[in-house]
């Protein structure tokens, strides 16, 4: 499944777990797990479009608004790209 998932991602324009689940005929929970495995194995790199919670916002009155709903991004790493090229 990881191979198919990685190949599907490389052909996608964005990550939609529901769409990937429908395309691969697997439940969404499994797709989520597969993405986590690909990140753990170093084929995908995860990013988050938000200042991290580790940032000290001090007494900024807007601090509670930061990092509430981060936009998640995934990048295919060099290892991931090599794997895709081989398959």
């Amino acid at each position: 499944m990881l191979k198919e998932l990685l190949l599907e991602i490389s052909a996608s324009e964005y990550i939609s777990k529901t769409l990937l689940a429908a395309k691969l005929g697997r439940p969404e929970g499994l797709i989520e797990d597969g993405l986590a495995q690909l990140v753990r194995l170093g084929y995908l790199a995860e990013g988050s479009g938000s200042s991290s919670c580790a940032v000290k916002c001090g007494k900024c009155p807007y601090a509670s608004l930061c990092g509430q709903d981060p936009i998640r991004t995934l990048t295919i790493t060099t290892a991931g790209q090599k794997y895709i090229d081989r398959h």
């Binding site: 479009g49 200042s51 916002c57 900024c60 807007y62």
Partner: peptide, 19 residues
């Protein structure tokens, strides 16, 4: 993505660039 964060406040927008 940092630009979208910057619509709220430029400070976290600039910090979001670290990702």
């Amino acid at each position: 993505i940092p630009l979208i964060v910057g619509f709220g406040c430029n400070v976290p927008g600039v910090m979001a660039a670290r990702t």
